[in-house]
Write a protein that binds this DNA or RNA. Structure first.
Lengths: 225, 225
DNA sequence: AGATGTTTAAGTCAATATGACCTTTAGGGG
DNA sequence: CCCCTAAAGGTCATATTGACTTAAACATCT
């Protein structure tokens, strides 16, 4: 039993995923999702949080962490039967390649670039990553999970940028604002403002208490790019 | 490693879930979800399909089967660490309590009744069942999964009954029809008709090729009961 | 045969949500 | 003081939804 982590963050205009360079056989030297064996006395979630710290140097306390699913093809690991439980972790712009306590290198990679260049990840990690990406894209529609990518407090433009980066399409700023503000509990105003490099000050918000968006925020045809 | 199955079907006006009476310790005699150990050379899905046949006598070939998630609390099984992967299986009115090849009794139980009477299921199966139920309710909204409960061909009233039973609320027949027929690929007409016990003949449909409903069919306020 | 009951099918209409687009506001810099 | 930029707020045609009404197609009863 192992857990594997798909850790996403938004940096600039890119969705990044955290990869490690494997320091052990099999797949030595190949990029892979961080992960490791589950210990006897911990829950799967605890194991995921522990690996988050050990392999990525990230404190999972402030991250959104949810289970993606179990992957158990008997041929997925050349060593024999290893079932892995994949977790999805989402956070605001996270610290740089914090090499884990394990000596291997850890770094952020562009998710879209990985998808294009054919990702040569170890094990069945390409499939896990693909499912994770699809899950995030879908969840943006009908949950308020996008706020997990924004350091608080945040502006509506920052929140919109999360959608635009992950969906790969521009959204109308005005319609986006209307939709978010009309959805009770999506965000809550702090009353504060922040000055952008240029332009009018932007109001600041925190995450609201709502999780499900009803009706959802659909990535319909409302794009510009 | 085990797999556990939450098998739902609609019978009349009730959502039923398949339970077995445990024939082994621990929890001997207690109701539980069907399931069992995963074998070394099979995928998780294959294991689920095999247990479907062995414990419930059901041919999984025509069922909708999807993974729910892994449950791995180290205290969930008194025997020690057993991680289980829960699967969700959905099908049209399935054969009666087909006692499995294992000698234990297998039977259909009302899902809503279980939820009320406080279900004394073995292990963490109450939690698994609760999550499965919530998953089905949510998936009805934004996927065409409801058709998995209808034997083909089916009428729109039969499809609507699935929603009504699982959501526990009446839907407006006319608005439901409009929504389903306007959603490309949800259902496809066969051209055939069927006579109800009384009343106008109903057109028959098969499942369409669409899986995601866009926009979703929300369980808003549109109820009558 | 014709009236009646029942269920499916189809239509109406106001309220709401969406997509596309425009205008105003509030800053900083020249 | 003017200009540029991004945020904020508004307009309007269109699409969708919810509530409700009407028509059609069968079986049965009288």
């Amino acid at each position: 039993m192992t857990v594997d982590l798909t850790i996403f963050t938004v940096r600039g205009d890119q969705l990044m995923v955290l990869l490690v360079e494997r320091g052990l056989e099999p797949f030595l030297g190949r990029p892979a999702l961080p992960g490791g064996y589950v210990q006897k006395d911990e829950t799967l979630r605890e194991g995921a949080l522990r690996e988050l710290g050990e392999e990525a140097g990230i404190d999972g306390g402030r991250l959104h962490l949810e289970q993606l699913g179990a992957y158990g093809d008997p041929r997925r690991d050349p060593r024999g039967r290893v079932v892995t439980v994949a977790y999805l972790a989402l956070g605001p712009d996270l610290p740089d390649p914090v090499g884990g306590t394990d000596a291997r290198r850890a770094y952020w990679a562009s998710a879209s670039q990985l998808a294009n260049d054919g990702m040569d990840l170890a094990f069945d990690h390409p499939a896990i990553l693909a499912e994770a990406l699809e899950e995030v894209r879908r969840k943006l529609e009908y949950t308020a999970v996008a706020t997990a990518f924004c350091p608080e407090p945040f502006t509506l433009s920052e929140l919109r940028a999360v959608y635009e980066v992950i969906w790969g399409q521009q959204l109308d700023p005005s319609n986006f604002r209307r939709k978010v503000l009309n959805t009770a509990g999506f965000v809550q105003p702090t009353g504060e403002q922040r000055l952008p490099p240029t332009g009018r000050p932007a109001a600041l918000y925190r995450r609201g208490n709502a999780w499900l968006l009803n009706p959802p925020l659909l990535r319909g045809t409302g794009y510009v790019t």
